[in-house]
Structures are given as structure tokens and as C-alpha cells.
Computed example of a mutant assay.
Amino acid sequence: MRNLKSIALALVALASFTVNAQTKKIDVAKSGIVWTGKKVTGSHTGTIKLESGNLVFKKKLVKGGTFVVDMTTINTTDLSGKGKESLDGHLKADDFFGVDKFKTATLTFTNISTKNKNNYTITADLTIKGITKPVTFDLVVNGNTATATVKVDRTKYGIKYGSGSFFSDLGDKTISDEFELEVKLAW
């Protein structure tokens, strides 16, 4: 009987959270991600599109979030012509993100610390190439938009091409292990 009472209380608590929580679906057409990858001789930037996403609010505070990124939309924006085609192709290949096999990447919030009403520190599970690792970043909410800068160590996801951490004598062909994502969300 005690177990049934515990289960009933848990269901009531879950129902209460669901009733009080609001899920805001991300407008992927108004949202975007700009990536920056660095190497010894410079950097490259580009875009990648969200496939879907949502933020969960309770009493106007962020309480959850899940996102799916369409990895097939990797697009270099600082190059044109053959250079752009070459880099886009290489980033989509198995050396990097292997988009033929891994068409999406996902991010799911696992812990949210409120800094103040509109600023949060988020820890999330990021899955790239089927490998899930935690990432931590700050999220700023302003009305119906949110922004975040997420730094990702690509080697944690098996992406070691050109990494000075794994290969010696790369010289000026060394690529930074970390890349940065500037995320803008709208709903």
C-alpha cells in the first residue's frame, strides 16, 4: 500500500509540473548556429541549421531543453568556389562529422542553474557521431529569444583529424581541438 501511495504522489507531482510548465517550440527559420573552427594559420566560419528544438519554462524560468541539429547543413561562409566546396565536403566526411551515417546531432539539458531571472548555466548531453558527452555553457533569455556560446572539444567525439593532441609534426596544418558555436534561438 505504501508503494501505491508513493507512486500516486509521484504522478500528482509530475502532473503538476506538466500543468505549470510551458514548452516553447523553437522557430528554426528564425534561429541559427554560427560555427568557428580555428587552425594555426587562421580560422573558418560557417552556419549549421537546427532541425527542431524546444525550451521548457516553469514560472518564466528555463527548466529544460532539447535540440536536434541537421548536420547535413554544414556550410562554410568565409570561403567561396572550390575552397568552400572542398571544406564543406571534408567537414561532412568521416574525418570530421560523417554526416552520411550521422545526419543529426542532439543536445539535451541535464542540469540548469539560475544565475538570475534571464541568465542560466546549462549542463547538457551533446551527442555527435553517436557519442554523448556533457558540455556546460551560459544561456541568456531575452523575451522570445535566447543566446548561448558553446565550446566543444571535437576529440571527445572521435574527431581527431589534424589534432595536435594526437598527431605530432603537423606544423601549420594543426587544427584546434575546440570549435565554437554561437547559438541564437527564437520562438
Rank of each mutant, 00 (worst) to 15 (best):
I33P: 01
K39T: 08
K156Y: 15
K30T: 00
T106V: 02
F166Q: 05
V68L: 09
I175A: 03
T41S: 13
H90T: 06
A93H: 14
A148F: 09
F102P: 07
K49C: 02
S163T: 07
G164N: 05
K115H: 06
D153A: 06
G98R: 10
T47P: 07
T147F: 09
N111V: 00
N142A: 06
T23D: 04
K63P: 01
I122N: 01
V34H: 07
E180S: 13
L185G: 02
T77E: 00
E180Y: 13
V69S: 08
K184M: 02
V12N: 10
V150I: 15
G158L: 11
L139Y: 06
R154E: 13
F67R: 01
I74N: 05
K60R: 09
K184W: 00
K156F: 14
R154A: 11
D153Y: 08
V150H: 07
V62L: 05
A13T: 14
K129L: 13
K101Q: 14
K117F: 03
I128K: 10
A10P: 10
V12L: 15
T136F: 07
D88Q: 11
L126H: 03
V140Q: 12
D138Q: 08
W187G: 01
L91K: 05
L185T: 00
G53F: 10
N75P: 01
V12W: 13
K39H: 11
A146T: 01
A13P: 10
V28L: 01
F167A: 01
F57L: 06
D78W: 10
V140H: 12
G158Y: 12
F17H: 06
V69C: 10
K49F: 04
I48V: 12
V99M: 09
K92V: 04
K84G: 05
L50F: 11
E180W: 13
F57K: 02
K84N: 09
V183F: 08
S43R: 07
I48S: 04
G143L: 01
I112P: 00
F67Y: 11
S43Q: 14
S43T: 09
V99G: 08
K129C: 11
F97G: 02
T23N: 10
